[in-house]
């Protein structure tokens, strides 16, 4: 119920997640994000087709954010549906992670 792929747009490494991030699928994103891109890169998580995230999914995003920071990289997310955005707001993630409206807006801001 989850589909993850990666594309590179200049210095931005875009990871697109489609489907549901819950306790049964979040380990797949965790494994995917364990590999940190090279210096000067920006990590963008495109969640436009993410229909659901639970605390298990948020933990993976938080872990990736901390890993990126410890490597001197920026991590941002984009394309949150209103219900996922609400979960980011309530969990406090919105104050820790830059959120962009769309991939286009994110790429414009990050490059």
């Amino acid at each position: 119920m989850i589909n993850i792929d990666r594309t590179v747009e200049g210095k931005v490494v875009v990871t697109t997640v489609k489907g549901r991030l819950d306790s049964s699928s979040s380990h797949k994103l965790d494994e995917f994000l364990a590999e940190v891109p090279g210096d000067g890169s920006v990590i963008l998580l495109d969640f436009a087709e993410l229909t659901y995230i639970s605390s298990a999914g948020l933990r993976v995003v938080l872990k990736a954010t901390k890993l990126a920071r410890s490597s001197g990289l920026t991590l941002a997310v984009c394309g949150l549906i209103p219900q996922v955005h609400e979960v980011f707001d309530v969990s406090g993630f919105s104050t820790m992670i830059p959120i962009h409206q769309s991939r286009e807006a994110a790429l414009a801001a990050l490059t």
Binding site: S55, A56, L58, R59, E86, V87, V90, S91, G92, M96
Partner: peptide, 24 residues
């Protein structure tokens, strides 16, 4: 309410999930 700045391991069991449910 969970402390997001702490390490993930320090977090109380189920803290983040319950915080979300309670708030929503």
């Amino acid at each position: 309410a969970p402390d997001l700045t702490g390490s993930l391991e320090e977090r109380r069991i189920g803290g983040l999930g319950v915080h979300l449910v309670r708030t929503l």
